[in-house]
Amino acid sequence: MVAIALEGVTKRFHDVVAVSELDLVVEEGEIFGFLGPNGAGKTTTIDLMLDFIRPDEGRIEVLGRDVREDPRAIRQRTGVLPEGAEVWGRLTGQQHLEFAIDSKGVDADPTALLERVGIPEAIDRKAGGYSKGMAQRLLLAMALVGDPDLLILDEPSTGLDPNGAREMRQIVREENDRGATVFFSSHILEQVDAVCDRVGIMRGGEMVATDTVAGLRESLSTDTVLRVTVNRLEADTVQAAEAVEGVSAVETETVDQPTLIVHSDGSKTAILTAIEETGVEINDFQTEEASLEEVFRAYTTAETTA
């Protein structure tokens, strides 16, 4: 079964394309890491999945239902931790959880939920006095109400210290063991790396890579990074390098001299030739091994052309 399916989804805000022809499938029972820098379109994609916003094109199904048709039925079986959300200052922890429990029409114990997220002592305190991390834990507890089939966590580590982030990942694993599908967004690789079965990397509104974590590591071992120092950059230099077979990503740097950083498992000569054909002069080049961090960076860093 498929938990989440997006088909050719495009969303524009006025004339800005936030998400462009996005296809994505998340299988039931997997932990999917949704990576990308801030502004890549991750939250827009999640908002589309929750019917907070409507796509200009394409179809979205969550838990086997069209999100436009019955978003309420989907949310009944989904726990959501929205990005940058705030708690209600005048409600206590207990009242927050009671609201979630009433809203879902389920039986759950607020004390047990708060114990699970590590803030049982805050149950009778008004959430207005919580720290950022405590508020985030309370929102996670609300998302867990009713043992949802799908958990959608948008930047769940926001405001958590490393210890809190680790506890959060532990809960994600427990929920997954229970049978829940987890869709988990982050702009930080390590948080996803440790816990996810599969990751998707988004940049500029497009999915630039979807693979298992093992698959990403695999591509890392064959990938080499070519640093090419040139005398200047032409408008089409980057595109020319990207067009070469085997090239997965191209970054540019202009710290001392203009430099192209090309990730590729193909021919070095072909890349160098393609760069020269755009009319620039190659001063120097060297090859490096890529780390997972660099692969992610290459995928997610926007091109900077001087």
Partner: peptide
């Protein structure tokens, strides 16, 4: 968003 994440 917290309000609307719940089934309403």
């Amino acid at each position: 968003k917290v309000l609307l994440s719940l089934p309403h």
